[in-house]
């Protein structure tokens, strides 16, 4: 009986979705968490995922405290009585199917692999939340900051992203766009890497980038992250004026990627002035 009522209630919500703005939104993905927090109206967003509270990957960990923390499991999400769930394409499909089976509309957001993709994500979130005006403002601001960075001309030093387990980001990645926007050329692209792939340490050493960008290690220590401290990596960065790490601003396709690019452009200016 209860299930029956829930189903009919959910069905009604689904049918009304295009016309009425959702009032009880639950996000279960780090990237939709951030876009929703930026765009949702007063009281519209109910809960964000636990990952949004993690400083290491979430630039909005402070803001997240205003919302209920969820662990992305169908049962607890259902108990929040949402009229819309925001998920990512990599959210386990059985969770999404179960929520949809319970009559809750779920909108899934793709992984962003370019700066243009960030604009699309903002626009999509604006539409889903019925907050098109707020989204338009955010996109206009994004375009202005991006254009300011693009205006800078000058030497383009090479940089290589080198993450835990020896992964790098090639041409088809958001990180590549951030590098390019900050005025670097991606050494992984020159070495023939098209997307995120494992790169042998020897290949890194032979490609001799002007800057190696690693990540900030998690507490506790791991062999996967130790490789970023390998003497060969250290020797490469020993010649360069500045070192830097990727942080939570690099993780999702949100306007925070511009903050990452702005900081990286600062590193490039320091490198240029040190070289003179």
């Amino acid at each position: 009986m209860v299930a029956c009522v829930a189903l009919s209630f959910g069905g009604a919500a689904l049918a009304d979705a295009p016309s009425a703005a959702p009032q009880r939104v639950v996000s279960i993905n780090l990237c939709t968490d951030q876009l929703a927090m930026m765009l949702a109206g007063e009281g519209q967003l109910l809960s964000v995922s636990r990952i949004a509270f993690d400083q290491q990957v979430s630039p909005m960990a402070e803001e997240a405290r205003a919302y209920i923390r969820n662990f992305g499991q169908a049962e607890e999400v259902y108990m929040l009585r949402p009229d819309l769930v925001l998920a990512g394409t990599f959210t386990p499909s059985h969770t999404v199917r179960m929520l949809e089976g319970l009559g809750i509309p779920v909108v899934r957001f793709d992984i962003t692999s370019s700066l243009d993709g960030v604009r699309d994500q903002i626009a999509k979130m604006g539409e889903v939340l019925h907050r098109q005006t707020a989204a338009a403002h955010l996109i206009a601001d994004f375009d202005a900051r991006r254009a300011a960075l693009e205006e800078e001309r000058g030497e383009r030093p090479s940089a290589m992203l080198y993450y835990a387990n020896g992964y790098t980001s090639g041409e088809q990645s958001l990180a590549n766009d951030i590098l390019e926007l900050a005025g670097f050329s991606n050494a992984a692209v020159a070495a023939g890497y098209e997307w995120g792939m494992k790169m042998p340490l020897e290949v890194l050493a032979l490609s001799e980038p002007d800057l190696v960008i690693t990540t900030r290690p998690y507490p506790g220590g791991s062999r996967a992250e130790d490789v970023m401290q390998h003497p060969a990596v250290m020797a490469l960065n020993g010649n360069s004026a500045s070192t830097t790490v990727t942080d939570h601003d690099w993780v999702c396709g949100t306007p925070f990627v511009l903050r990452a690019a702005e900081r990286l452009a600062e590193v490039r200016r320091e490198m240029a002035s040190a070289a003179q």
């Binding site: 835990a164 387990n165 020896g166 340490l201 290690p217 998690y218 507490p219 506790g220 220590g221 791991s222 062999r223 996967a224 992250e225 490789v227 390998h230 003497p231 060969a232």
Partner: peptide
């Protein structure tokens, strides 16, 4: 471990590898 990479290293500790070792 609080480190998300640590759990995937169980296989390294059980099976052993010399990849990316250094003079250190």
């Amino acid at each position: 471990s609080p480190n998300p990479f640590a759990a995937s290293e169980i296989v390294f500790w059980m099976m052993g590898s010399l990849a990316d070792r250094s003079m250190t």
